[in-house]
Computed example of a mutant assay.
Amino acid sequence: MDFELSAEHRMIRETVREFCEAEIAPTAQEIEDEARFPEKVFTQLADLDVMGVPIDEAFGGLGGDQLLYALVVEELGRVSGGIGLSYAAHVSLGANPIARFGTDDQREQWLRPLAEGDGIGAWALTEPENGSDASSMATTAERDGDEYVLNGTKQFITNATVANSILVKAITDPDAGADGISTFIVDPEADDGFEVTTVWEKMGLNCSPTCEIVLDDVRIPADRLLGEEGDGWDQAMETLDGGRISIAALSTGLARGAYEAATEYAGEREQFGRPIAKFDAVRDMIVDMHRKIERARLLTHEAAWRYDRGEPVTRASALAKLDASEAAREVAEDAVQVLGGYGYTEEFAPQRFYRDAKLMEIGEGTSEIQRLIIGRELGL
């Protein structure tokens, strides 16, 4: 296979990297401490024309491929896990399903603002009681003339407090199991009965809002149905195949950020008359960190490469997400160790990457679920 980066890939990656260094890195800890969604950063990302990287230019996107999108996510994750998470949820979960499954009218009304950066997208699948059994949901959507009436609660919804549109999964046929799930476009600002009831204080990623939302007799026009009734579960599985690639890329970025902080520190910090990077124990730890990052990136790029060619990517994306998410946590933990006592303080970045990395093993399918998926793909 050949997923060599094109000149466009390299140029956009470098542009985003320079932006991240100049505009995000200096305040990354501050916005995390304040649990503040950085609206200005997302406005600037819109100015860079990367809020809709994989979205067709006809609907306001950049028209890039999944590999380019993965590169952008990685660069954001390298400086801020929270910004990277909100960005990935916006593109992969909030915008891309409309691009793939929506009508032209839906794309024009709902996708274009997301792709052009005039709005933020979100996706609501998880519920308080269903966890990893995502198809076992209680949220309902009942047809009433030219409208649907939505009722239910969704949990751990990224971007819900800042979203201009949310794709909500709901049961339209209670007797059909997963085949009775459908997808609806909800407008949080205009649809009566929609409420964000909780914004969670988390272990990390606090500049990215994670919310509980309640839908209480939310009436929406029938033309807000995405695809057909009963398409929701298949749409979700296809969406998650791509979403796992973005989480793998984000994880790789988190690992890079932690690794670079540890490498810089180890080269400058002296003990017993020489930099600690010269000691075997520290050097070997840094080498292992580098190895894990390179492996995670290669698996991520392979999954993106296959996605761009229209190949099945369930196994590849699950493998990339599993490996990269675990690498992010392991590399960040080792980075804290390299810095010793300083690594445990908020004056240095590794503690933030460490806290951020843990969610990568939980969100968009836990590591255990990824192993289950890979096992099924291997016929086990």
Rank of each mutant, 00 (worst) to 15 (best):
Y342D: 07
Q337Y: 11
E302W: 04
A320P: 02
E333D: 14
V313S: 09
A303I: 01
A303V: 06
R306L: 11
G310E: 07
V313P: 00
S325M: 05
E326T: 11
L322S: 09
L322C: 08
H290Y: 15
A328K: 07
Y307N: 06
G310N: 06
Y307W: 10
A328V: 02
R329F: 12
L339D: 04
E333P: 07
L319M: 14
E330I: 07
V336S: 03
E302F: 06
V313R: 02
K292E: 09
E294R: 14
L339Y: 03
A327D: 04
S317Q: 03
V331I: 14
D323Q: 12
K292S: 13
E330F: 04
A304V: 01
V313H: 00
L298N: 08
S317M: 00
V331R: 07
K321D: 07
R315Q: 13
L299T: 01
H290V: 11
Y342Q: 13
L319D: 06
D334P: 05
V338A: 12
E302V: 09
L298F: 04
R306D: 04
A327Q: 08
G310S: 13
G310R: 11
V336A: 05
A304C: 08
Q337D: 12
G310T: 11
E326Q: 15
E294M: 10
A327W: 02
L298S: 12
M289S: 15
K321C: 14
V313A: 05
G310L: 14
D323F: 13
Q337K: 14
A303D: 04
R306M: 03
R306Q: 09
G341T: 10
Y342I: 10
D323N: 13
V338N: 01
E311S: 13
A324Q: 08
D334E: 07
M289K: 14
A316T: 05
A316P: 00
Y307P: 00
A327V: 03
A324G: 12
Q337I: 10
V336Q: 01
S325A: 15
R329P: 06
S325W: 01
D288S: 15
Y307V: 07
M289N: 12
K292Y: 10
L298C: 12
H290R: 15
L339V: 02
A303N: 09
L319T: 02
Y342W: 04
I293H: 07
E326L: 15
G340P: 03
E333N: 11
A296M: 06
T300D: 05
E326H: 15
R315N: 14
A324I: 09
K321L: 07
V331T: 03
E311L: 13
V313C: 08
S325L: 10
Q337W: 05
E302P: 05
L319R: 06
E311N: 05
A303M: 00
R306I: 00
A335C: 03
L319A: 12
E326P: 09
R291Y: 11
A332E: 00
Y342A: 12
I293L: 08
R306S: 04
T314F: 05
D308I: 07
Y342R: 13
D288G: 15
L319P: 01
Y307I: 00
